[in-house]
């Protein structure tokens, strides 16, 4: 799974370049996220605009990444496609993460408390 990253406006943006974060991909996603975020700092924005499907394993992996990053590096989500947004909504995880409609909105949002 490709997770290209870039620094934009003091944030580390991670693009998920894969159509699915499902049971077959969740562990790999979690491990790759750990690798690419180890050297960065500041808030992390996960760009999910290319992800068409995420199941409960994928959701668990995103939660695990958030915990791993800890309170000093907030994990924001951006660009959820409709089915992915539905999974976050139905599990009430949309109240746990800050979810932005797209990357530009995520980057424009204030750099308030982490």
């Amino acid at each position: 799974m490709d997770l290209p990253t870039e620094n934009r406006g003091g944030r580390q943006v991670v693009h998920v370049d894969a159509p699915r974060i499902d049971a077959a991909a969740a562990i790999h996603f979690k491990d790759r996220m750990r690798e690419v975020t180890t050297s960065g700092h500041g808030r992390v924005v996960l760009d999910l605009s290319r992800v068409e499907f995420l199941d409960s394993s994928g959701l668990g992996a995103v939660v695990s990444v958030m915990k791993q990053l800890g309170p000093d590096r907030r994990l924001d989500l951006a660009g959820l496609t409709p089915t992915v947004a539905k999974v976050f909504r139905l599990t009430r995880m949309d109240s746990v993460f800050r979810i932005h409609p797209d990357l530009d909105t995520a980057l424009a949002s204030g750099s308030d408390a982490a």
Partner: peptide, 15 residues
């Protein structure tokens, strides 16, 4: 909300 309390599994049956 509360990351500490959150389980990383168990969402499948809920869905």
């Amino acid at each position: 909300p509360g990351a500490e309390a959150m389980n990383e599994g168990g969402y499948g049956l809920l869905l």
